[in-house]
Amino acid sequence: MDNIITFEDFSKVDLRVGTIIEINDFPEARNPAYQITIDFGALGIKKSSAQITTLYNKEELLNRQIVAVVNFPKKQIAKFMSECLILGAVDGKDVILLNPEHQVKNGSVVS
Rank of each mutant, 00 (worst) to 15 (best):
L61T: 12
S108I: 00
D9I: 10
I5M: 12
I21V: 15
K75G: 00
G88Y: 07
N3S: 07
A50V: 03
V13R: 09
K58E: 14
S82E: 01
V69R: 02
K105G: 02
P73C: 00
N31W: 05
A89M: 12
V67A: 12
I5C: 13
T53C: 13
R16Y: 01
V110L: 05
F72V: 04
F26W: 09
T19W: 03
I5P: 01
V110A: 07
E59T: 13
N71E: 03
V95N: 08
D14M: 00
V17S: 04
V109N: 02
K93G: 06
T37Q: 13
L85T: 04
S82W: 01
R64F: 07
F26M: 15
L61E: 09
N3I: 07
I20Q: 09
Q35W: 07
I66H: 07
K93H: 14
L62G: 08
V13H: 07
L98E: 09
L55N: 14
E8V: 09
D91P: 00
R64Y: 05
G18N: 11
P27V: 13
I4M: 11
P27T: 10
H102F: 06
K79E: 15
G88Q: 06
A50I: 01
L87E: 05
N31T: 14
I23K: 10
F10M: 14
T6W: 08
I21S: 05
A42L: 01
V17Q: 07
I96G: 00
D39G: 05
N31M: 13
N106S: 09
V104A: 00
F26C: 13
K105A: 04
K105H: 04
K75H: 02
F72P: 00
